[in-house]
Nucleic acid binder design. Sequence first.
DNA 1: TGTTCATATTTAGATATTCTAACTATTAGC
DNA 2: GCTAATAGTTAGAATATCTAAATATGAACA
Lengths: 166, 166
Amino acid sequence: MNTDGSMELSRQLRPLLTRVYQMVRRRSPGWDVTAAQSSVLTTLLDRGPLRMGELAAVEGVRMPTATSVVARLVKLGLVERTADPQDRRAVQVGLTAQGRIQIDALSAERNANFAELLGRLSAEERGLLQAAMPAMAHLLSLDADPNLAASENDLSTALEGASNHE
Amino acid sequence: MNTDGSMELSRQLRPLLTRVYQMVRRRSPGWDVTAAQSSVLTTLLDRGPLRMGELAAVEGVRMPTATSVVARLVKLGLVERTADPQDRRAVQVGLTAQGRIQIDALSAERNANFAELLGRLSAEERGLLQAAMPAMAHLLSLDADPNLAASENDLSTALEGASNHE
DNA sequence: TGTTCATATTTAGATATTCTAACTATTAGC
DNA sequence: GCTAATAGTTAGAATATCTAAATATGAACA
C-alpha cells in the first residue's frame, strides 16, 4: 500500500495545517476566557447541545476535565446544564444566550483577521484553497465516530459557512 | 474592500482547518508528555534552537509559561538550555538527542495516521489538497513576524517535507 | 422482583499550565 | 558611569488535566 503518495502528502500537508491553525489563534487570542473554555464554547456553537461524554470526546479530553471546564463556564453564565429526561444519568450541556454572543464575537474576529490575510493572496491562490475545501470536509467525514456524531449540524454543514469552529 | 470574497472564504475555510487539526490531534494523542510539552518539542524540531522569548512568541504564550514548560522538559532530559555568548541575558533552548527521538516518533505516528485518511480520498481530492499547499505556505509567510522568524528552516521548507509541526 | 453488571457523570487529589506583578541580570544610550 | 530598555526568572494564584474511586441510573436476567 501507499503507492498513492498519501504518506508524502501527509508529511507535507499536516505541518502546514498545524502552522496555519496556530497562526490564526496567535493573531486572535481571545479576551477573557481561557483557551479550553473558548474551545468548548465553539464546539457547542458548532454542534449544538452535547452530553458531557460527547463533549469530552470532541474536545479530546477525559470526562472529569469536561466537568471542570463546564462548571466554570456555568459559573460565568456562558453555558447551562440540563438533565436528559430520557436518561437521568446524562447531562446536556448547551450555550446560554450570553455564551452564544461571546463566542460569536470571537469567531467573527478570527474570521475577519484570517480574511485579511486571504485578501493578500492572489485570486488564483484563493481559488485553489476554495477548491480544496470539499476534500477537507471528506476527510472529516471519514473520521466520523458514531459516538461523537454531530446532531443537528452534521459534517456537510461545515461547507455552508453556517458553523463556526475553533 | 472585501469584494474579493475573502471574508466568505475565511468563514468557510477557517472552521474546516480547525476541525482537521483537532481530528489529527485526537487520533494521535501522544504518550507521556503533555500537550504543551509536545507543542514545544515540535516547534524546536521545526525551527531549530530558539531563545526563550522567541519560543514563547511562537507558542503564543507569555514568557513565564515558556520558562515553566522548558524547565519540565529539561528535567525530562528532552531539551537543553545553553547560554548565548553574544548576549548573556539570553538563553538558547534546543532539543536533546533524546528529545529529537521522541518528537520524531510522535510526528511520524501522526503523519501515518493522517496518511491513512488521505489514502481513502480519491486521487483527484488528494491532487486538490496538494495544489492548495503553496497558497497555505504563502499565508504563513504573510504572517511572518521579524521577531519570531525561523532561523535555519525558513517558511519555504514547510513545503519540502523536511519539517514536522504540531 | 431484586441482583448484578454496565453506563454517565462527579468527586478527590495530584501535577501541569497559564497568567500578572515584581525581581534580577545584562545591554545600550548618553 | 547613570539611566532606561531588554531577556529572563521567581512568586503566587487560578485554571486545566489526569487517574482512581464514588454515586446514580439503566439494562439484563434468574
